[in-house]
């Protein structure tokens, strides 16, 4: 699917600020599932933008020294997504847990198996894992699908109910949050179960979903539950989205989206993967001046017919 993303972020400061340094993590990656055909960043007031290849993906950086009262960052990407059928390789019926007990796996993916800044390994999440286990087959993929569905069912998507520093424990108690919180909670459960799991930032194309996904997923694992929930408007299209990627025993990182109860497919555009939000925040900045600022962000993802 050929998708165009336009992501704008506007900061308005109460007073003029100076020495504004910003790191951007917005460029879609290129891998076996997607190709980033074009990517541009423009900054107003104008600044020279530098690109760095870091372990999590490409980071763009710029600074503005002269005083300014607002900052507009516009990122535009053209991405061709063509993932293989995510369900084709999934083993749902066999117990493949020995894969995760291998020492090499634990060493190689230690980073995605341990607690991180926003993902404490709360013992309470053990209960969630047990519930998901009861509702799934013996395969790890089956467990992860059940976990995705469970979190989607018990958690309420409530914009504004949390902020970036809301502790996971509070999210768990109130059972509500935004896509970041859903993702962090699922990460905590997976890591507690010794399944390497990473935070994925990206974009989601929300148009025409039911028409396109059903034929592409013949093995849709929960046909009986494909109820009205699936036909709701997908969440995450008007901002940057977040979901979870887990290492499956075939060595592939598969995306699971607890906010939408979906397995990542061609509607998903991958940007960066990290331990949690802190590693891949789309904008990280620091400036000199009054702390009072207002941020507006808008994301548009649309389907293109041709390049």
């Amino acid at each position: 699917m050929l998708l165009r993303v336009i992501h704008t972020t506007r900061y308005t400061y109460r007073e003029q600020v100076t020495e504004n340094h910003n790191e951007l993590r917005m460029m879609p990656q290129t891998d076996q599932d997607q190709i980033c055909l074009d990517f541009r960043i423009s900054v107003t007031p104008p600044a020279r933008v530098f690109a760095f290849d870091l372990p999590e993906g490409t980071m763009h950086y710029f600074n503005l020294r002269p005083p300014h009262a607002s900052l507009l960052i516009r990122a535009e990407a053209l991405v061709d997504t063509h993932p293989a059928n995510p369900f084709a390789g999934m083993n749902l019926a066999e117990d493949d847990s020995t894969f995760y007990q291998q020492e090499d796996i634990r060493i190689e993916w230690r980073r995605y198996l341990t607690a991180s800044r926003y993902v404490p390994l709360l013992p309470e999440t053990q209960r969630i894992a047990e519930m998901a286990r009861r509702q799934s087959g013996p395969g790890t993929a089956s467990f992860l699908i059940a976990l995705t569905r469970l979190l989607h069912r018990v958690m309420t998507y409530a914009p504004g109910s949390t902020h970036v520093n809301t502790p996971l424990r509070e999210v768990l108690e109130n059972k509500q949050g935004v896509c970041q919180d859903f993702a962090h909670l699922m990460l905590a459960v997976c890591r507690l179960c010794a399944i390497p799991a990473r935070y994925r930032s990206g974009y989601i194309y929300t148009g025409n979903l039911e028409q396109e996904q059903s034929p592409a997923s013949p093995n849709w694992p929960w046909p009986e539950s494909q109820d009205s929930e699936q036909h709701e408007q997908l969440i995450g299209g008007d901002a940057m989205h977040a979901w979870v990627e887990c290492l499956l025993p075939d060595g592939k990182w598969q995306g699971f989206d607890p906010t939408n109860n979906l397995v990542a497919d061609s509607h998903y555009i991958k940007v960066q993967a990290g331990r949690d939000y802190a590693d891949v925040a789309p904008v990280r900045g620091i400036y000199r001046g009054s702390a009072e600022q207002n941020m507006e962000t808008a994301v548009e993802v649309r389907k293109e017919q041709t390049v």
């Binding site: 020495e19 340094h21 530098f50 760095f52 950086y61 600074n63 990280r284 900045g285 620091i286």
Partner: peptide
């Protein structure tokens, strides 16, 4: 402070980049 500790006043923003 851009990289490690946003609360630190000792450093130089942008130095790591």
């Amino acid at each position: 402070p851009l990289m490690f500790r946003p609360d630190s006043l000792l450093g130089v923003p942008g130095l790591v980049n």
